[in-house]
Amino acid sequence: MTLKDLTKPWAAFNYGFLDESAKRELRRKMLKAVAVPGYQVPYASREVPMARGWGTGGLQATLTLLKPTSVVKVIDQGADDSVNAVSIRKFFARVGGAVETEDTQKATIIQSRHRIPEEKLREDQILVLQVPDPEPLRAVQPDMSIAREMHGDADYGQLWLVLYEQLVKSGRIIQGSSYPSMVNGRYVISPSPIPRWDVKKLHQADHLTILSAGREKRIYAVPPYTNVEPLVFDDVPYRVEDHQDKTCYRSNVTGFFMNELPQDDGSSRHELSDSHFGVKQIRRNEGEAVEIAKTWYNNGRMD
């Protein structure tokens, strides 16, 4: 065995940007991540033509899964049309020949930052979440080697303390995003900076979720039909954002996660955060036959 035997013929460019050895490493790590739900698997995290912190983790996971028949949707804070989302989506089309979409139902891979779509994902879809800080223990334990031991021992007492202090200081739990959640009764994860509204969508879902942090070089997963339980006290139930009664001023839809738009007169208006979901609602209002899938929340409530 020589290196020459392992070398492939020269090519100007590899399909899907990453070279094959990078993809093999990611495949191995993704499989381990699925096998131990919630455990943060270290991985190499290669250079991609984008600065760390802008979704390089999600990008690498998606590139590994990508094939020419993939249909990719990219979300940035709920929107398909932000610069970050558009340029990532175009990148997949350019280096992977993938089909671009904004429609949640049509996508096979959904890469997202900060939101999970309002429409329920199917079991043949994969959700890739970009994660800036994968370590739920960082606030209580800056030393990552010790944090690793704490995960090994399932030593999560200090996270409860953080929540308790919020409760004492503010009268309620103010953790707005990255809400620490127990996966499969063993590992606490940061579900990435999705709002509390979205954390429940990971619990016993039909789809596979892969969470990848490029800068921090960790990848973890929530398989389908897996318990994801936000950390809560027995006597203080988990509360999602109070958006149940908010109505989108553009689509007239009520009961979904909204963006609040401050107005000059001090009041505020709301619009749907999931932009393409809003587009579909508006088209439907205008009389177009638009197919909208079942949503996780109905009238602002889950179940």
Partner: peptide, 10 residues
């Protein structure tokens, strides 16, 4: 760009 995967890649 050659955006098609080789047989091995696929």
């Amino acid at each position: 760009l050659s955006i098609l995967p080789t047989a091995d890649d696929s």
